[in-house]
Amino acid sequence: MADEGYRNANVEGQEVPYDPEQLRKVQEHPCYSEKAHHTCGRCHLPVAPKCNIQCNYCIRDFDCVNESRPGVTSRVVKPDEALDLVKKVMDQFPYVKVIGIAGPGEPLANPETFETLRLVHEAFPHLIMCLSTNGLLLPDSIDELQKYDVGNVTVTLNAIDPAIGEQIYSYVNYRGTHYTGREAAEVLLEQQLEGIRMAVERKMFVKVNCVYIPGINDEHIPAIAKKVGELGAFSFNLIPLIPQYKLAHITPPTPTEKRAMQDRCAPFIKQMRHCARCRSDAIGRLGHDVQSRIYCGESGCGESKE
């Protein structure tokens, strides 16, 4: 997979010289490498229940075992429980190369995230550390993430125009102030763009998730891809809207529409085309989750299917 590692993070054809450790963070990460998702796995640790923004498409149910979407987990675990979980996963599923924190809320708004990163990094320094965030606290947290060798960061960014952003977010809570409307979208966007810039500056690989919302941000998405590509983000993951909460009335894009939008964005940044819309407690290879084997083993609920 060496050739894959030397492709430009933004536009294919331009080469960027990564060192071997950086290459590994691409080659063994199932979200950053289309080849790796067949052979390597990830383990998401659901240690972060609180969130500091409200997206108009987001409902976070912690106990819905039949749903596979971001923000869902069977239960929230404490940092020491998360470390025990990693130990069990590494014993049973050694193909897991990535430890990620993706919720079920906003990881950077929960102190448990940083304690978990510390514990896991100290015990398993060879594992790839990954984190997903809405970006609001990314500039404030970037140095601590670097301290724990978080080399892969995903930022969900759905608009670079606050007029569009205010249709997507109900509120933003930042540094003790509750923002709504256009002001909320402006505060969030400023932090997101600065956080991406700072992460790239620290040689972290940044993947940008963008929720494709027909009638709201659809014609705006290529501009988002262009902007984050210019900032040095590694890849762009277009996620079709799951219609719920305040956007339950919107019909999500079809697979054909999604592919067409990815093709429009491809000139600006590498496209991730194999996303499985992982839960916050996902374990295993993309599309072949095994977390129920771990959690059911704890509760004695019996063996489950992969």
Rank of each mutant, 00 (worst) to 15 (best):
G195V: 05
N173G: 06
T180M: 13
T180V: 13
E194H: 10
Q167H: 12
E144V: 09
R182Q: 05
N152G: 05
Q167P: 10
V187W: 06
V153I: 13
E201L: 13
E166K: 10
E183C: 12
V206E: 05
D140A: 06
G151N: 01
I142T: 01
S170V: 07
Q192L: 15
G176I: 15
N158K: 09
R182F: 07
K203V: 14
F205G: 08
E183M: 13
T154R: 03
L138Y: 00
N173Q: 07
P139K: 07
R182A: 06
D140F: 00
G181H: 07
V150K: 02
D140I: 00
S141L: 02
K207Q: 13
N173T: 03
I164A: 11
L138H: 01
V208A: 07
M198N: 15
G165R: 04
I164D: 10
D149G: 06
I160W: 01
V206A: 04
Y148M: 11
Y148R: 05
G176V: 15
E186G: 11
I196M: 02
L157A: 02
E201Y: 12
L145M: 07
G176Q: 15
K203S: 14
E186D: 10
E186L: 08
G181Y: 06
Q167N: 13
V200T: 05
P162N: 02
D140M: 00
Y169L: 15
G135I: 01
L145Y: 00
L136T: 01
N134W: 01
L136M: 03
P162L: 05
K203Y: 09
T133N: 00
E190H: 12
F205N: 07
P139S: 14
S132E: 03
T133A: 02
K147G: 09
I168G: 07
E201C: 12
A184D: 11
L136E: 05
T156N: 09
F205P: 05
G151R: 02
E144D: 10
P139E: 11
T154Y: 01
Q146D: 10
Y148N: 10
F205T: 09
T180F: 08
E190P: 07
E183D: 14
V172D: 08
M198H: 14
I196Q: 02
A185Y: 01
V200Q: 12
G151D: 03
T154W: 01
S170G: 10
G165K: 08
E144Q: 14
G176R: 15
S132N: 02
R197Y: 03
Y179A: 11
A184W: 05
I196V: 09
D149H: 08
D149W: 04
L136N: 02
N152C: 11
G195L: 06
E144Y: 02
L138P: 00
Q191T: 07
E144I: 06
N152Y: 08
H178N: 13
V208G: 03
I196C: 01
G151S: 08
I196W: 02
V150G: 03
D161G: 12
E166T: 10
N152E: 13
A185Q: 04
T133C: 03
G195C: 10
E194A: 15
Q191D: 12
E190R: 15
A199C: 12
Y169P: 05
V153C: 10
T177I: 15
V153A: 06
Q192V: 15
V200N: 06
L188R: 11
V208C: 05
